[in-house]
Every structure is written in C-alpha cells, then in structure tokens.
C-alpha cells in the first residue's frame, strides 16, 4: 500500500551562484530539478541518524533548535573549528541554504517518523544520574529540552553523537566561536565533566531516559 506523505515540494535551482565566478565554471542546467532536501543521504532515512557517517538523528528535534544550528553552520559559527571534524563535514551542507530553504527543510523534517536511537554506549548509569543533575537545569529532568533556555532535547538522540559533542565542547571545538552564545553557555557546563568516563556515564544515563521514552 503506498503511503503518501504530503511534502511541500520546493524545487530550486540555487546552483552555483558562487561557482560561476570561477574560470567560467558550471552553470545551472536548464530543466534539472534540484532542491536542498539532500539531508537524508547522510542523516539516514527519515533523519534517523547514521553512525557510519557520524550524522545524528534529526527526526523529532525541535524546529527552533534545528533552525539555530543550521544558521550557525551557515554563518560558520559552528563547524569551522579545525578540531570539529564532523562539524566540518556538515558545515558546507548548510553554507548554501537560503532562509526559505531552511524553512522548507524544517517543514520536511517535521513530517518524519521519529524512532528513538538505539544505545551503543554503556557506562555507570548511577554515576551518570548524579552528573546529570546539573544538566537537568537546562535540558530538563527527562532530557526533553527547553526552548526558553535554548537547550535541545537529548533523550532519543544518538549516544555516539552526544559523546562527540561533549568532547568537542570540552576541547573548545564547539561553543568557542565568539558569536556562539548558546554554545558558550553549554561549554561552561562541561566543567562538571571530569573526562571520558564522566561523559560515558552521563550519556549512559541519558540513554536510560531514552529507554523510558520508548516505553
């Protein structure tokens, strides 16, 4: 039975405004249908996340948060630090998006089936729970996120991705850009994390919140 999702289709030939300045390079082909909905190649079907390309789950994430991240990537506020290997892979994907295109994409993402991520990392959940008390202030007791505080939901997110982010915040590869206000807030919070083991423990605890979400 065909299941039809009523996507708003938005075809754009946004191509190559930038490339046109090169030695006569590449112009848009007439009739080639192109849009910016190429996210699922990396982020997986329905944005479920794909560890093999290190692209996290997008399905189920709040629009306000996704919008901010896409704007940050586009402006080079996120994904520009040489230590942010995966962010550097994502940054060019957002560099050419227009506001209109971002809204179209958020619309599209809103229609995706949400499948909470499967855990891949284990740690000391009790120790993680203790650490998470600080985090709960902003991310919420169930890690459901808070728009008012700018903190995204963490429950349901890929654990390997959260580990990368915490490592990057700690190392200053994320949240160090002078215009990254929210990232800077989060970065200071990593002070409570002593190192790799703490990161695993707190992420293991978040996994347990994900499990509750599934129930």
């Amino acid at each position: 039975m065909p299941i039809t999702c009523p996507f708003r289709r938005l075809f754009r030939i946004c191509l190559l405004a930038a490339a046109a300045s090169l030695a006569g390079s590449a112009m848009a082909a007439p009739g080639e249908r192109l849009d910016d909905r190429y996210c699922t190649t990396c982020h997986g079907a329905d944005g479920r996340g794909n560890e093999a390309v290190q692209a996290p789950k997008l399905a189920g994430m709040a629009s306000w948060y996704l919008r901010l991240q896409l704007e940050n990537y586009r402006a080079g506020i996120r994904g520009a630090h040489p230590g942010d290997i995966e962010g550097l892979a994502m940054q060019p994907m957002a560099a050419g998006l227009t506001d209109e295109s971002i809204e179209d994409i958020l619309d599209w993402i809103g229609g995706w089936k949400v499948i909470p991520a499967t855990p891949t990392i284990s740690g000391d959940v009790a120790a993680g729970a203790a650490l998470y008390r600080t985090c709960a202030t902003c991310h919420g007791a169930a890690a459901e996120g808070s728009e008012a505080l700018g903190a995204p939901a963490l429950a349901g997110q890929n654990d390997w991705y959260m580990v990368t982010q915490l490592e990057n915040f700690l190392a200053g590869a994320r949240g160090a850009h002078p215009e990254d206000i929210r990232g800077a807030q989060m970065r200071t919070m990593t002070a409570v994390l002593g190192g790799e083991q703490d990161i695993r423990d707190v992420v293991a605890y978040i996994n347990s919140l994900t499990a509750r979400m599934v129930e």
Partner: peptide, 15 residues
Amino acid sequence: HGTLIDELGNRQVCD
C-alpha cells in the same frame, strides 16, 4: 557538457 555533478554542498553542472 551539461552533466550534473551532485556533490553535496558543491553541486556543479559541467560546461
């Protein structure tokens, strides 16, 4: 001539 190179983040059309 005219081939779309669908490189993500760097689409080109060969001229």
